[in-house]
Design a binder for these strands. Structure first.
Lengths: 397, 397
DNA sequence: CTGAAAGCGCTTACAG
DNA sequence: CTGAAAGCGCTTACAG
């Protein structure tokens, strides 16, 4: 049991003298060293290690003993080359531009979103013996495309956080290697994973409209062209028009998914003398933080005068004053599911890859009512069930 | 210029029909495809691509054209195997145990520290065409050692955030592959990178003792055996004894580097009826957050009754009430330097590796005076220069 | 300057 | 069940 963990028997010298002269750098042992020590062929060593075609008990033991003695670990490059499996999934994150973060030094928080997703991936990846190769790419980079293709050649599959490739590039890439996006929409050859924006936003919209009775809303969007921002916006617009409620949108309501963008939008509106809606629905929590900040600066009471909501329910949301009403996504699940999806595509079965391709996987979202919408202490107008201050209300499926 | 970026000419069909039948999955082109299209040998293609032994202008052009047409990117596994360079550095992070984070849901913030270091690495890695393979390891994992050796076989070098390996394992590993630690102390075969704990803590200690005149201090340590925590503690003890000031330490002052640990320590002390020192010096900012929290719970004024300081100067430090006095480390530099160090060890020159081994690289730290030490608005007792509320005072070199 | 060939360290049909 | 051999896709001496 103890020697079974490997590396234990390694007195070192014996193994090392066999491996070579190495003074400052010992060459790690190869499968040939193991075969020699075990008195077997490298094929047998390989079979034992990979559990193929069950070898004789004695063979197995000799191999295992030699492996432990030498501390042998197969070289991944050789393994990858011959088995056509690198056990690596590449992850592409868009590097945050430092342009929008002067005002909120903690904007680093924003890193949390992709980082938390990656964390979810990593946990699952590990269970499958995979590692993640995370590469951040700058949108303005001239050869972002090349860098992603290069990453692809280091990986068995790719997960893309953002839209960086042109549709043509994405198409070519996803023909060569399994690709899963978190960026919004599947294509014929890629799968996509996303939070159920539609259901989450509809639940939130109904809560604001019917439970609180707000008649004027605005949508503070995320950055241009973000599919998440778009689908949230659509769902909200749909609910608003169905209920005959006014919804303000447009350029002046464009944010950046960052606190600074939300704050700036509010500052401009106030400077322009615009009158604010009864509730501001933000594309994400970060934007809402900026909005809360700007409103506080101008002494506008939240939720008394203007209600504010977020989306994502990041950990920080419950610590804001007032506590932020938001729509929870299980961020780690997003990552875990994205990984499971590429993994199923990678795993040999060309059937698997074809069944996953083109799929759009929506993960459940949950409306979390806190104070900033008007619930709790200073709730304003409740038409249906009493809104709870605790996270318990589910969205309609 | 436009076609120089690659991938542009790829009408696809021509290349693909050459590459194979592939319906759902196209095989990426290999160097053989490029050679065929260019009418040259694979050796020439390789030379052009790697800038070896300058080939004729025409040869170069033909290769480049074929590469662009096919969208060729070399397979990393094949490259790694034959060139003995993977262009990957493995990074081992200790996975945070979820035991200590019940009370502070935002303890995820703690992830920021290793994440920010990794970010610093990544930026530099990218400049050298390297990627980072980040693997988190659980201390309790029975075969943490094996997982790290396995990571080593996927990498050209390793950066270890924490102490996980036994000294023997670390020794064997670092003989096989360049290893840089961030964990505290170099060995004969590894290099270490760390913030200059000693200078930073001494500057802080002198500030508290001489500028503020505090005569009783305590050191709220980090988790057991942390070299950073130890050297900070030593420096503080040294300054305290030199100045004839009382320093409380010991088991009751042990924290965990996390907010919860700091809060718990204070709670216990108060519950035990212990009287608090004039200033509590915490091993890091997170601990200080917990301490501030606990003191506030008991209505103890900071810095009026008890001063509190941190270490690290995380972004959040300036947003606390009172703003936290701390010792700044450039966290990204820590990562960048760690990478530069492994990189220099990897880079062929056995001279390079031997000169880096055994080195202990200290990065400068900077005392940041804010409110929690007693500076600024409610400063208490100033013996020397007026402490500024802004980050400007340097530590003694 | 260029090409043919060996070799990197594995896995996996193919024989026996 | 096991071994000899081919092959994965590159790089790099070695000839020419």
């Amino acid at each position: 049991m103890s020697s079974d963990l490997g590396f234990t028997g390694a007195d070192g010298t014996a193994a090392r003298s066999a491996a070579g002269q190495g003074n400052s750098t010992d060459q790690p042992p190869t499968i040939y060293d193991v075969a020699r020590v075990a008195g077997l062929s490298i094929a047998s060593v390989s079979r034992v290690l990979n559990g193929q075609r069950n070898p004789r008990q004695e063979t197995r033991e000799r191999v295992l003993r030699a492996v432990a003695e030498l501390g042998f670990v197969p070289d991944s490059a050789a393994r990858a080359l011959s088995a056509r499996l690198k056990e690596v999934v590449g992850v592409v994150v868009r590097r945050p531009r430092w342009t929008d973060s002067t005002m909120f030094a903690d904007e680093d928080e924003n890193l949390q979103f992709p980082d938390m997703i990656n964390r979810g991936m990593e946990i699952v990846a590990q269970q499958h013996g995979f590692d993640l190769l995370i590469r951040s790419v700058d949108l303005d980079e001239p050869d972002a495309g090349r860098r992603i293709f290069a990453l692809a050649r280091k990986s068995d599959g790719l997960i893309l956080h953002d839209r960086i490739l042109s549709p043509e590039e994405l198409d070519r890439l996803s023909r060569q290697i399994p690709v899963v996006t978190l960026a919004g929409l599947p294509t014929a050859t890629t799968a996509n994973v996303h939070g159920d924006n539609d259901a989450g936003m509809r639940a939130l919209a109904r809560h604001l409209i019917f439970d609180h009775g707000y008649r004027t809303l605005s949508y503070l969007a995320g950055h241009d062209g973000s599919p998440d921002s778009l689908s949230r916006g659509h769902a909200l617009a749909d609910e608003a028009s169905a209920a005959g409620v006014t919804l303000l949108t447009g350029e002046e309501w464009r944010g950046s998914y960052q606190a600074a963008g939300g704050a700036r939008a509010i500052e401009r509106l106030i400077a322009a003398g615009a009158s604010l809606p009864r509730a501001i629905v933000c594309a994400n929590d970060q934007s809402a933080i900026g909005v809360l900040h700007a409103l506080a600066q101008h002494g506008i009471a939240v939720p008394g005068e203007v209600a504010v909501t977020g989306f994502d329910d990041m950990p920080v949301a419950r610590h804001l004053r007032p506590q932020l009403t938001s729509v929870r996504q299980s961020i780690q699940d997003l990552g875990a599911t994205a990984f499971e999806t590429v993994y199923s595509m990678i795993n040999r079965s060309p059937a698997g890859i074809d069944s996953a391709r083109g799929r759009d996987i929506a993960l459940p979202t949950l409306l979390i009512r806190r104070e900033s919408c008007g619930c709790g202490s200073r709730s304003v107008s409740i038409l249906s069930e009493p809104p709870a201050a605790t996270p318990d209300s589910a969205h309609p499926e």
